[in-house]
């Protein structure tokens, strides 16, 4: 069985043929498309290391079968930084030391980008913590992660205000 998918990955349309319906989005990205930024920490939706955006929403790529995603728009950590440099969330993670080993970091960052787009946490640290709880960090960088998300929230708000002005 061969299935043809059309995927928009990080802004680029790609025709992807897959020969196996078992392939998850995560394994497609990592093993077949050379996009290894998203990480496999548990492969069961329990750790969040594989978080990517699908049609603008954060999901666990390990539990999404690639065949179901024909036509989807996928953003991975590799597609986040723009030509003008790091995304504010990425910069904030560095500034606040929101990681140690870095393995969960692509997932944390994509999750944070998704969280900020959802707009339900605002500037409330407790809401940020709760809504970032789908991303485990064994090194224990949670304090920096929370600070980074709040900082990026402020940066993005300020940018939005400037754009509006």
């Amino acid at each position: 069985m061969s299935l043809s998918l059309s995927l928009n990955i990080n802004g680029q349309m790609r025709a992807v043929d897959i020969d196996d319906p078992r392939i998850t989005l995560l394994d497609l990205l990592r093993e077949r498309l050379e996009l290894t930024g998203a990480k496999k920490g548990c492969d069961r939706g329990q750790c969040g290391a594989c978080t990517v955006l699908v049609d603008g929403k954060r999901i666990n790529a390990c539990l999404a079968l690639a065949v179901t995603l024909d036509g989807a728009e996928i953003t991975t950590i590799e597609g986040l930084a723009g030509e003008d440099g790091l995304h504010p969330v990425q910069a904030a993670f560095i500034h606040h030391d929101g990681f140690q080993c870095g393995f969960c970091t692509p997932g944390q960052i994509m999750s944070a980008v998704g969280l900020l787009a959802e707009g339900h946490a605002g500037d409330d640290p407790e809401r940020v913590r709760e809504q970032m709880s789908g991303n485990l960090c064994r090194c224990g960088a949670y304090r920096g992660i929370t600070e980074a998300v709040l900082d990026a929230h402020r940066t993005l708000n300020a940018t939005a205000r400037e754009d509006a002005a």
Binding site: G45, R58, N135
Partner: peptide, 9 residues
Amino acid sequence: GASAQLRNV
């Protein structure tokens, strides 16, 4: 329930 990622799906 679950996590934000799972709730999105």
